[in-house]
Design a protein around this nucleic acid. Structure first.
Lengths: 157, 157
DNA sequence: CTAAATGCAAAATTTTTGCAGTCCC
DNA sequence: GGGACTGCAAAAATTTTGCATTTAG
């Protein structure tokens, strides 16, 4: 849902990686090979992968990478607010490296999570009913439904 | 966040239970003691409990109730759209029996999930960016932050 | 009666942890 | 070199499943 040229995507990824390295230094996190690759994989992914999925994908390049390192790394990066855990209804946790304000649409058929922006919503005031609740850090929308691809596959097959 | 008199709450619960029994009959789900009590516990709860929490609470009254029955029952009721799994970032799944449109505020300190309504949001049109995504069944807002109670506790202690 | 539901036990899945060795700074 | 990080293995936490028995309709 976010059109972007290949060139721009590449530049974007490189900036993200530079920012990541900087953030690790500031936070006294060591820039290990595994850590860097896990972050890069997540920054590159558009499907909000789980720890297991990231591990599976990296195994091809990093044969010795262990699943518990992936878990530990994701947990560390989340603690330092360099990545986010996505709120879902699934049993496996899913992650993203995009820390800009955005929202999610989840297909309950194929599980794909798609990002979208909604600037006018981001700035709107919350209803009075919840105004006394406390300090709000984030307001996320999650759409649930059936994506176009699955809807068509259902009709076809 | 939803003020309601005790009397109204009681009448509400009774209606929910009647509707539940009716729905079970229509769906050919047997009205077992356990099933009824699990639903009642969830309908009564305001904190969106996990399977384990429901089990713990019911154990006092239903000493023989097993945790796997709670899991199985919640799964069955969710499949029949009589309850919902709440989207969270936690590892334990949390449930609710309130099937009316509403939204959630989650405290990342104490984990409490609070309901709120936002009718004007429910009717608003989605941004163009996501309009071609597919068929949308639900649009949920989740607020993340620190609830008033935890904020005060932090300041005090 | 009969199909569905329960309880028990065991397994599967997902995530976390202790420890010894390795690697970044 | 020293503390943080990794991999291994084992454990913990969460959820699911097979099967014999019980129960609602």
């Amino acid at each position: 849902m976010r059109a972007m040229s290949k060139k721009l995507q590449q530049a974007n990824l490189e900036k993200k990686l530079r920012d990541f390295e900087q953030a690790c230094r500031s936070a006294d996190l060591k820039l290990t090979h595994q850590r860097l690759e896990i972050f890069r994989e997540l920054a590159l992914a558009v499907d909000h992968p789980s720890a297991e999925t990231i591990h599976k994908r990296l195994k091809k390049r990093l044969a010795t990478l262990s699943l518990d390192t992936v878990y530990r790394t994701l947990s560390t990066l989340e603690k330092h607010r360099l990545i986010t855990k996505v709120e879902t209804v699934e049993s496996q946790a899913r992650f993203e490296a995009d820390m800009d304000r955005h929202h999610h649409a989840i297909c309950r058929q194929c599980g794909t999570i798609t990002d979208f922006n909604w600037r006018s919503f981001d700035d709107v005031q919350l209803p009075h009913e919840i105004s006394g609740w406390g300090r709000i850090d984030k307001k996320n929308i999650t759409l649930h439904g059936i994506c176009e691809k699955c809807a068509n596959a259902g009709r076809a097959g």
